[in-house]
Each structure stands twice: as C-alpha cells, then as structure tokens.
Computed example of a mutant assay.
Amino acid sequence: MTRVAFVSCVKTKSETPELAEHLYVSPWFRMAREYARRNAERWFILSAEHGLLDPRTMVEPYETTLNRMMIEDRKRWASHVAWQMEDLGVKGDLAFVLAGERYREFLMNRLAIRFDTVKIPMKGLQMGEQLSWMKNTLGDHQR
C-alpha cells in the first residue's frame, strides 16, 4: 500500500533558511510532521508560497498564506499543486491530508483522482482539539 501525507504550512517559521521540514516551528506542525512520517511512505508540505514542497528542500522564510488569498488565486494554487503532483508522480492507495479548509477546498477532487482513498483525520476539529488529537495519537514517542 502506498500512503502519502500532506501537511499544510503554518505561520510560525524559523527566521533563517531551513530544510522545509524544519522551517515551520509551531507545535502543531511538529506533531503533524511526526504523524506524516509515521503513517506514510512519502509526505509533502502544502506551502502557500511554493505549492507542493518536498520536506528536504531548502526554503527561505515567507509570509504567504492561502487564508488571505482571493478565490481565483486559491484555485490557481490548487492547479499548481496538481501539476506538481503529476510531475513528481505523487499518487497511491491512501492520502492523509493534515490541512485546514482553505488548503483543501480546491485540492480534494484532484487528490481523489490520484488516490484510491483520501482521509482528513482531523476534519471538523478546532486547533486545540487538533493538538490534543495528535498528542494522543502520537503518544509519548514524539520526536
């Protein structure tokens, strides 16, 4: 079974260039990254600035967010991510999406084409509930 996880970027970032997996420094992102590592063979960051971002890519800090983008820009972003998935051959049996509604809204249909099953483990949970869910799911063995 091929499992791929998608983790959204977050506002809190390092002030210096870092590998993408280390650029985002919030507790939410660190736990989502760990969930992705444990539950998928591949994982990617859904970056408002870069689209689909390989965690091992060196990245400069940025301030772009989908939350402030107009709807047409969010549609273009989702098309760009879909093109990147095609280019990188990202597809499989199961996709996990750890991202808010703005990051999912125009991406879900595109993921459904590339994956047999798409799961949103924290759908409908508020931020505090998401943190609690990840903490309980990951247990005491967080990296």
Rank of each mutant, 00 (worst) to 15 (best):
M1T: 06
T2D: 13
A5Q: 03
F6D: 01
V7Y: 01
V7C: 03
S8T: 13
S8W: 04
V10N: 08
V10T: 15
V10Y: 10
K11H: 06
S14A: 15
T16W: 12
T16G: 09
P17V: 05
E18I: 03
A20W: 05
E21F: 07
E21S: 14
E21T: 10
E21R: 11
E21Y: 08
H22L: 13
H22S: 15
L23N: 01
Y24E: 06
V25R: 14
S26V: 00
S26Q: 02
W28L: 15
W28Y: 15
F29D: 01
M31P: 04
A32S: 09
A32M: 06
A32C: 09
R33G: 02
R33F: 03
R33Y: 02
R33E: 00
E34C: 11
E34N: 00
Y35M: 08
A36S: 03
R37D: 00
E41I: 01
E41Y: 00
W43S: 01
F44P: 01
F44V: 05
F44R: 05
I45R: 01
I45Q: 04
I45N: 03
I45L: 11
I45K: 01
A48K: 01
L52W: 04
L53F: 04
L53T: 05
L53N: 06
P55R: 03
P55W: 04
R56H: 14
R56I: 03
R56E: 12
T57I: 00
V59C: 04
E60S: 12
P61C: 04
P61I: 00
E63H: 07
E63W: 05
T65E: 04
R68H: 10
R68E: 14
M70G: 14
I71Y: 13
D73N: 13
R74E: 10
R74C: 08
K75P: 12
R76W: 14
W77H: 11
S79F: 14
H80P: 06
V81I: 15
A82T: 04
A82Q: 07
Q84T: 00
K91N: 06
K91E: 12
G92F: 12
G92C: 12
D93E: 15
D93R: 12
D93C: 06
L94V: 13
F96V: 05
F96L: 07
F96W: 11
V97N: 04
V97C: 08
L98R: 06
L98E: 04
A99M: 05
G100N: 05
G100R: 01
E101I: 03
E101L: 07
R102M: 11
Y103N: 05
E105F: 13
L107I: 13
R110G: 09
L111V: 04
L111R: 06
A112G: 14
A112K: 07
A112W: 02
A112I: 02
I113Q: 06
I113H: 08
R114A: 12
F115G: 00
D116V: 00
V118F: 05
K119G: 00
I120V: 15
P121I: 08
P121V: 10
M122F: 12
M122E: 10
K123G: 15
K123N: 14
K123A: 15
K123P: 03
L125D: 08
M127K: 06
E129V: 02
Q130R: 12
L131S: 07
L131F: 05
L131I: 09
N136F: 10
T137N: 14
T137I: 11
T137A: 13
L138K: 09
G139K: 07
G139I: 08
D140A: 12
R143M: 11
